[in-house]
Amino acid sequence: MQLSSENPLAKHTLNPNSWVEKYGDYLYNFAYSRVQSKEIAEDIVQDTFIAGLGAMKSFQGKAAELTWLISILKRKVIDHYRKKSSRKETVASDFSTPFQKGGVHEGHWILERAPKEWTGDLDDPIHREEFRDILALCLSFLPDKWKAVFVLKFIEEINSDEVCKELGCTPSNLWVMLHRARLKLRECIEVKWLK
């Protein structure tokens, strides 16, 4: 590939025919950690390659090939969530609050659902791996829109205005969703971890 030969500062080149072999696994895992579905992850990797091939002319050789592909993939993840969250709103059954309603203890934890200490040493690689799997599983249980805001805020660290623009939410609505996603995720992990 001689795409960037005109630019004397360019160091990086693109070799699409080796993308699958060189970066396939990495990109697949990268996508999976953000969507928690093997099928969707494969689709996203495929879309990334197609978009990459279409955008090769704009590759300036400033970034390494993989870095460039990752930036395209991140965009595809956002696109995926945008499509998903425009389709389905969350329903009441998606969330039951772990806090008391009414009475003098309004807003305090319902005792049976309050956080319990998580036993087990997370410095131990086996436990760490188990924890990683449980987190991925519990993330996959979140309603699409919550998962979307959770992934975009906590993993991609995209600023709130932009997330709201992509997913169609208001900033205060965003924090409510993140809070609920967090509560649901925590409880799910606890149940599976202490089992």
Partner: peptide
């Protein structure tokens, strides 16, 4: 991600599919 400790690996079939896509669009 830690390159040496990836959770998943593409199967041969998946790789073939992706490779075909790349070649078709290249």
């Amino acid at each position: 991600l830690d390159t040496d400790n990836l959770l998943l690996h593409l199967t041969g079939e998946q790789k073939n599919r992706l490779q075909q896509t790349v070649e078709k669009h290249n």
